[in-house]
Computed example of a mutant assay.
Amino acid sequence: MNFDLKEIFTASMILFAVIDIIGSIPIIIDLRQKVGHIQSEKASIVAAILMVVFLFVGKKILNLIGIDVNSFAVAGSFIIFFLAIEMILGIQLYKDDEPETAAVVPLAFPLIAGAGTMTSILSLRAEYHTINIVIAILINIIFVYIVLKSSKRIEKILGGQGINVIRKIFGVILLAIAVKLFATNITGLF
């Protein structure tokens, strides 16, 4: 067993930055307002399963269907870009005719376990032992669950104006992340 606290800490911090659940609070609050209820447990469990499965078979799946990691990351950057545009401009691009709850889409995927997260997991796999990455994923999922479960309380603390300000700020940050993910991976396509 290759249990290493330093690897766990580093992998946790990398995943924390990429998942950016704090930056996603405005999106989570928006979703809760649209659908009325967020299934925190289901979203967290599905995201954890997606990440762990992708850790073990992600590259093989992408290769099997003829997609390289760079293409996957560029596609993910478009999703993040459109989420950012929604936040900044206050428009709705993603429409679900009759959403009942928010759990798997768009919470578990692409918000929590999106292309950026999956690409990061593949990068971590090249540097760290698998057990440490799995522990880092679980640490992040626990934090994600706490934020999802507390979204109503967070909304009350921030208020309507606070949420709007944070939505715009994090929309710009999310846009920057999308541009960086795109720029980093587009050269690998040519």
Rank of each mutant, 00 (worst) to 15 (best):
Leu31Asn: 04
Glu86Val: 01
Gln161Leu: 15
Lys149Met: 13
Leu5Asn: 11
Lys168Glu: 05
Glu98Gln: 09
Asn63Lys: 15
Ile61Cys: 11
Leu107Val: 09
Gly162Met: 14
Glu86Ala: 03
Asn132Gly: 05
Asp96Pro: 03
Ile137His: 07
Val172Met: 12
Val104Pro: 00
Glu100His: 07
Leu181Val: 01
Ser151Met: 15
Met51Gln: 11
Gly36Asn: 09
Ile19Ala: 01
Phe109Asp: 05
Pro99Tyr: 02
Ile65Asp: 08
Ala84Trp: 02
Gly171Glu: 02
Thr119Arg: 03
Phe82Ser: 02
Ile169Phe: 12
Ile154Glu: 11
Ile65Tyr: 10
Gly162Ser: 13
Val57Gln: 07
Phe3Trp: 13
Ile154Leu: 15
Ile137Trp: 09
Ser40Asp: 11
Thr184Ala: 12
Gly36Glu: 13
Phe16Arg: 02
Ile14Arg: 06
Val52Tyr: 04
Ala43Ser: 14
Ser71Val: 09
Gly23Ala: 04
Val147Lys: 10
Val18Pro: 00
Ile91Lys: 06
Gly90Gln: 00
Leu124Thr: 03
Tyr128Trp: 05
Thr184Leu: 05
Asp30Arg: 07
Val53Arg: 08
Glu86Asn: 04
Lys168Phe: 13
His37Gln: 12
Ser44Val: 04
Ala102Leu: 03
Ser40Val: 06
Val147Asp: 10
Thr119Asn: 03
Gln161Ser: 15
Pro110Val: 07
Lys34Gln: 12
Gly36Asp: 12
Ile177Trp: 00
Ile133Asn: 06
Tyr94Ile: 12
Leu158Asn: 14
Leu148Arg: 13
Phe170Ala: 01
Tyr145Ile: 11
Arg125Pro: 04
Leu50Pro: 00
Val69Asn: 11
Val57Lys: 09
Met1Pro: 04
Asn140Glu: 09
Phe78Glu: 08
Ile142Val: 15
Val18His: 02
Leu148Val: 14
Gly162Asp: 13
Gly116Val: 02
His129Gly: 14
Gly36Tyr: 10
Asn63Ile: 11
Val74Phe: 04
Ile133Glu: 08
Met13His: 06
Ser77Thr: 05
Asp97Lys: 14
Asn164Phe: 12
Leu148Thr: 14
Ala183Glu: 05
Lys60Arg: 14
Ile49Phe: 09
Ile142Asn: 11
Gly58Pro: 03
Val57Cys: 09
Ile166Asn: 06
Asp68Phe: 11
Glu98Ile: 14
Pro110Asp: 02
Thr119Tyr: 08
Phe190Ser: 10
Val35Gly: 08
Gly66Pro: 10
Phe81His: 01
Gln92Gly: 07
Val104Asp: 01
Ala75Phe: 04
Lys180Tyr: 06
Ile45Phe: 13
Val18Glu: 01
Glu100Ala: 06
Pro110Asn: 04
Gly188Asn: 03
Thr101Ala: 10
Ala17Phe: 09
Arg167Gln: 12
Asp30Asn: 15
Asp96Tyr: 09
Asn164Gln: 15
Ile25Arg: 04
Val172Ser: 08
Ala75Thr: 08
Ala136Gln: 08
Ala103Gln: 03
Ile169Ser: 07
Gly188Thr: 05
Thr184Trp: 01
Val74Tyr: 01
Ala136Gly: 11
Lys60Pro: 08
Thr101Ser: 10
Ile29Lys: 04
Ile139Arg: 09
Phe182Ile: 00
Ala103Thr: 05
Lys180Asp: 10
Asn185Gly: 02
Ala73Met: 07
Phe81Gly: 01
Lys60Gly: 09
Ile139Asn: 10
Ile163Trp: 08
